[in-house]
């Protein structure tokens, strides 16, 4: 019997709920031990622009969903990620140093992270908001509202856990995201699109790009229809690019300083509602009280 040829997967972008090829037609090859394991898109500025259009369109629907429903959907993402755990472990083990054991630990932590924020979805408002004591016949509430369209620049490592660690708190509070995944290890980002597509995440709420920071960072920061930026694992120079671009329309810039990839596993820091706080706006309401 002849030897079977394995089928290599060609991953595309995840954009507006669909899997389009990059508008630029460019691709990159992911290799493991000198052998190609997958083909990926190398996203262009126009892909990013299209992603922002899709995200903006999805924002009103996603933020209007009940907190409980957003929690359910994040939990569904965790379920689907768990179901594809083996695929993620293989992909990470093949391309990221540290072997299978490290990869499995990362995937499990990513699932747990999603579950944490699925739980936070209908609880963060109680922590970040409050009823303010005021003089007079009024109730006075401060309530967190989503900031809007958030661009996420994920760290190179850990490729999956870092991305999920930034994405989950952003989605949890009703924001929508355009993500540039790990540049060094982009495979996990590409597979994550399949998780989003099968877990009731409405089209456009999560948009995943694989590509090069050098080409995309400036637009990630400067695009005027973006409301906030979440970045991790960026150099001082890249941070400067982000902050200069953000000045264009006074975006929020939140850079996570994480000393080592291992730190992302820390639950006390990364499963905390403080991460949600960076991407909400506080609205204060006066309401007449009865009697």
């Amino acid at each position: 019997m002849s030897e079977r040829l394995p089928v290599l997967k060609t991953y595309k972008l995840y954009l507006g709920g669909a899997f389009p090829r990059t508008e630029s037609g460019r691709s990159q090859v992911v290799e493991s031990a000198g052998q190609p394991v997958a083909h990926l898109c190398r996203a262009s500025r126009k892909d990013f622009r299209n992603a922002v259009v899709a995200a903006r369109k999805a924002l009103s629907g996603w933020s209007a969903r009940s907190a409980y429903n957003r929690g359910q959907i994040l939990y569904r993402m965790a379920e689907m990620l768990e179901g594809k755990a083996t695929e993620f472990v293989q992909a990470l083990a093949a391309t990221v140093p540290g072997g299978e054991e490290r990869a499995r630990r990362e995937v499990e932590a990513a699932v747990d992270r999603l579950v944490s924020f699925a739980g936070w979805a209908d609880k963060y408002a109680q922590v970040l908001g409050c009823q303010n004591p005021v003089e007079g016949p009024y109730h006075n509430f401060s309530l967190p509202e989503p900031t809007g369209v958030v661009t996420i620049v994920a760290p190179d490592e850990p490729a999956l856990l870092g991305l999920i660690g930034q994405l989950a708190p952003v989605l949890c509070s009703g924001n929508v995201a355009v993500v540039l995944g790990s540049e060094a290890h982009p495979l996990a980002t590409a597979i994550l699109g399949e998780v989003c597509a099968t877990s009731d995440v409405p089209a456009g709420v999560v948009n995943l790009l694989t590509g090069f920071r050098e080409e995309l960072l400036e637009q990630f920061a400067a695009h005027r229809d973006v409301d906030a930026i979440s970045a991790a694992g960026v150099s001082a120079e890249e941070r400067r690019t982000l902050e200069l671009g953000a000045a264009e329309n006074l975006k929020r810039v939140h850079v996570l300083e994480v000393a080592a990839a291992e730190d992302w596993f820390e639950e006390a820091r990364f499963a905390s509602p403080e991460l949600i706080e960076s991407f909400v706006e506080i609205k204060t309401l006066w309401h007449p009280s009865a009697s």
Partner: peptide
Amino acid sequence: TGVYAAHYD
């Protein structure tokens, strides 16, 4: 300007 406009622009 080199920059994409916002929906409110």
